[in-house]
């Protein structure tokens, strides 16, 4: 297992560059700085490499800012995994070495903090011709009052492929957390040959609107007003939401399987919601596919993905695929 921690790189940054040298993936760059940590285990499968993206202590606190640059070279297959869910701790205003501030322009009320330390993760990926990235981390878990921003940008060559999983849970169940974080903001943007094909932006925000402004002029009295919906109200009864994006030739096998599975669904009127739901939609005229899923139990969501993506064994190797969805 190789790991590098360069002292010269700025705080919380990482850089992965890999290329293929006679069927072996070689990292010309694998560097990171605290609190980011990159580990690459030995891989038997030809043309395949795995990198674990982790943070020291297994979690991120308010103000942490991580930036990762990834360059997947020609004909490489790179799996980016994590070890355990990304835990995002409570936001606190502070000035750590890796702190960035966000000014909240939409809740300028004196009572709320206008300056908050947000945890941010950003990833900028380029994927060369005939290569593929498999980004299959564990879900992000935001603790009570945490604020998290994740921005991931992917630049694909025309013949490149990507499998991108982005998922979030409602918090720590044993702490009775159920969508109690402050804010979760996730952007996934995919460009193919420079053309934007998908921009997925999810905002899960728990801060209520400043209701004073809207209601005063209304005929409605307080009793007819509907109570504001919390994040938990909107997302119930599920505690895990996932978005999976598939694009490019190396995803055709699993996409065909998913489409076939999706076509067999026929919904009859139900009295109560199912414990697990998923949907499939084509993007960019069917050249890509987006799957969304939600589950009462995170474990069910994980097992479902592990099963439906099993076709990737043929692409990255059985032993390599086994390292995802542990």
């Amino acid at each position: 297992m190789s790991s590098t921690t360069g002292e010269s790189v700025p705080v919380g940054t990482g850089h992965i560059t890999c290329d293929l040298h006679s069927s072996t993936v070689v990292f010309s760059k694998l560097s990171s700085s605290y609190p980011l940590k990159l580990l690459s285990p030995r891989v038997a499968e030809h043309g395949v490499a795995i990198v674990y993206v982790m943070s020291y202590g297994g979690g991120l606190v308010g103000g942490d800012c991580m930036q990762l640059v990834v360059e997947v070279g020609k004909e490489c297959k790179l799996l980016l995994l994590s070890q355990g869910s990304t835990k995002v701790f409570k936001t606190r205003a502070g000035n750590r070495a890796s702190t960035r501030f966000r000014t909240s322009s939409f809740q300028p009320t004196p009572s709320s903090l206008s300056l908050q330390a947000v945890t941010t993760q950003s990833m900028e990926v380029t994927i060369a011709p005939d290569s593929a990235l498999f980004l299959l981390p564990d879900p992000v878990t935001c603790f009570r009052s945490a604020s998290y921003t994740q921005v991931q940008t992917f630049h694909l060559a025309g013949s490149a492929s990507i499998v991108l999983l982005d998922w979030v849970t409602s918090g720590r169940r044993f702490m009775d957390e159920d969508w109690d974080f402050l804010r979760y903001y996730s952007v996934n943007e995919v460009f193919v040959e420079g053309r934007r094909v998908v921009r997925d932006v999810l905002l899960l925000d728990n801060s209520p609107y400043d209701t004073q402004t809207a209601s005063e002029s209304c005929l409605s009295n307080p009793t007819t007003r509907s109570p504001p919906r919390t994040l938990k109200d909107r997302l119930a009864p599920y505690s895990c939401y996932a978005m999976l994006l598939l694009y490019g030739p190396q995803t055709h096998g699993v996409v065909t399987d998913l489409q076939a599975k999706y076509r067999t669904i026929s919904i009859f009127k139900r009295a109560t919601p199912e414990r697990f739901l998923w949907s499939l939609t084509p993007v960019d005229d069917g050249k890509g596919t987006v799957v969304r899923a939600a589950g009462v139990d995170t474990e069910d969501v994980k097992n479902w993905f592990k099963e439906v993506l099993r076709g990737l064994e043929a692409v990255v190797g059985i032993n390599e695929y086994r390292k995802a969805f542990l």
Partner: peptide, 26 residues
């Protein structure tokens, strides 16, 4: 400016799943 507070976003993933599943209704 991807961290912008005033850009479009989906705020209800459940609504997305259910709306996409519209065509699957018997």
């Amino acid at each position: 400016h991807n961290d912008a507070d005033n850009h479009p976003a989906t705020t209800w993933p459940l609504g997305e799943i259910l709306a996409v599943r519209h065509d699957l209704q018997h």
